[in-house]
Design a protein around this nucleic acid. Sequence first.
DNA 1: TAGATTGTTAATCGATTAACAATC
DNA 2: TAGATTGTTAATCGATTAACAATC
Lengths: 209, 209
Amino acid sequence: MGNKVISEAVVKRLPRYYRYLEHLEQEGVTKVSSGSLARLLGVTASQVRQDFCNFGGFGQHGYGYDVSYLKGKLAEILGLDRQYDMIIIGAGNIGRALAGYKSFAAEGFKVRALFDIEVREPRIGDIPVYNIEKLSDYVKENGCDIAVIATQKSVASDVANQLVALGVKSLWNFAPIDLEVPDDVSVENIAMSESLYVLSYRMKNKNKN
Amino acid sequence: MGNKVISEAVVKRLPRYYRYLEHLEQEGVTKVSSGSLARLLGVTASQVRQDFCNFGGFGQHGYGYDVSYLKGKLAEILGLDRQYDMIIIGAGNIGRALAGYKSFAAEGFKVRALFDIEVREPRIGDIPVYNIEKLSDYVKENGCDIAVIATQKSVASDVANQLVALGVKSLWNFAPIDLEVPDDVSVENIAMSESLYVLSYRMKNKNKN
DNA sequence: TAGATTGTTAATCGATTAACAATC
DNA sequence: TAGATTGTTAATCGATTAACAATC
């Protein structure tokens, strides 16, 4: 069971459902129908039901979905029912910002260490900063669920290769480059400049839409 | 001419083509075929040709595409042939990181000012920081092509509304929330936590792929 | 010219939407 | 029970891929 292949399109929508369910729960809403959820997200009720149906369906005929139950199921599906140990490579602007961002930790994604070629401060907030030479020993000793690549573009793929060789299976990449990794490693890109380009595209082509 | 509606899927691929073309040009490569470009990006040659064909086609039968020419055309299409004035709302971790990120400026996206409810320093790098109360006057006086929302989630939609009311047409949103804006305003989201959730989803469901 | 490769139309594939029987 | 709303199958739509005539 549960071996059905879920399309990438569906997977990318799950976090958004989760976010709205969190919101509804905070508002004290206890039940929600596919129709009202759809209206909230700006999608069709069909899509909402199809998406949940991929995982077996979590609703009750004639009633809808229990908000807390559905949220819990989504958390389970997304793997948010555990903690993740993260390290950040690159203690520049982005690396430091991510290290200081409290809400990731609150959601179970714990930044354990930063690495850079130059250690200017021993810690950023309460997270230790190490020389990049220590990376290998650190990972071997402490393990790492997710490595964040927040380096210069020029060294990003070398760093990625090193992390892959150390057995890290998940890379969160902020460098503007496509990383080549083996099949069993997954990469999520935060493509900031590409996103900016889409904005400028739309500005230029506004009249044509 | 040029009024053909381009699908979102195509638009999102354009920045990636542009990035590879930049790379090829730097490497001194002067011509490229749809086939070799496709191999590089991990897509089909058909898709490459279709995508460019949407804008009229920039190649030569039997030859391929001239790298510099194609890159120039993509820059034009993406609106990278001009400068953009940006402001950042929120001088916290992310706002500061973006303000300090040099490559946006190099690409023509100039951060002109930061705004926050509290001004701890008069400038971050060489970018002035103002009290959020000055936002309205600033925008009326200096204009703003793109506003970056780097605030707490709780105030993000208020800030967005204010920016929209001031006539800002492009929002680059880093807050984990969906902004509601009129049709003539465009929003690009950098959904960091959603991206993290996709990573954790894949970790949990690795065996099933 | 012959070979290569485009631009573009047609075919395929997958994702979204509609419909409705099942059922709470 | 009657009304509501799900889970799921079938129909539609759009995006991707294949094919090939045009042509450099």
